[in-house]
């Protein structure tokens, strides 16, 4: 949850980026609200009111974050290893892309192997079959027995018959 501070440099730059992102989000809300016909009806306040309030709120918070950055007190960020992030993110992207092509088991097996690799188990010859087998078992349990509709591929159709 709240940041685990460790040793590292003070990310003043990060605070500027966060402030910019917040302000950007706020601006998008305000822009979108401006395109909405604000039919308040009998209530007097319509669908554009809430996005406007939140949008301005985010801009104020962005300003506060920006000012705070000069005092350099955002958070101490521990050293981050980007490789696991890329591995897990990539695994998810592959799962999304392949889900409806190769079916749930194989796509999820890939995610499993990618996650295991992110945590140090790099031997795909071990992790990929294990992950696929686990996902395949889950498919049988959830799609077959509990009738949750999971996307099936060739593997599932061959063994479970669809």
């Amino acid at each position: 949850m709240t940041g685990q501070s460790g040793t590292g440099r003070r990310p003043d730059g990060a605070a500027f980026i966060i402030a910019a992102l917040l302000a950007g989000f706020g601006a998008v809300l305000l822009w979108d609200a401006s395109t909405i016909p604000d039919r308040g009806g009998y209530a007097g306040i319509g669908p554009a009111a809430m996005p406007k309030v939140v949008g301005w709120g985010l801009i104020v918070l962005a300003a506060a974050t920006f000012l705070g950055a000069f005092r350099g007190r955002l958070a101490d960020v521990p050293r981050q290893n980007p490789v696991p992030l890329i591995l897990i993110g990539g695994g998810l992207v592959l799962q999304i892309a392949l889900l409806n092509v190769v079916g749930f088991s194989l796509a999820t097996g890939i995610l499993f192997a990618a996650t295991a690799a992110a945590f140090g188990k790099r031997n795909l010859l071990v992790t990929l079959p294990i992950g696929t087998a686990l996902a395949f078992g889950l498919y049988g349990l959830f799609d077959g027995i509990l009738r949750l509709n999971l996307p099936g591929g060739l593997l599932e159709t061959l063994i479970y018959g669809g």
Partner: peptide, 8 residues
Amino acid sequence: MKHAILGA
């Protein structure tokens, strides 16, 4: 997709 294959 399984259903498409099955359907065919």
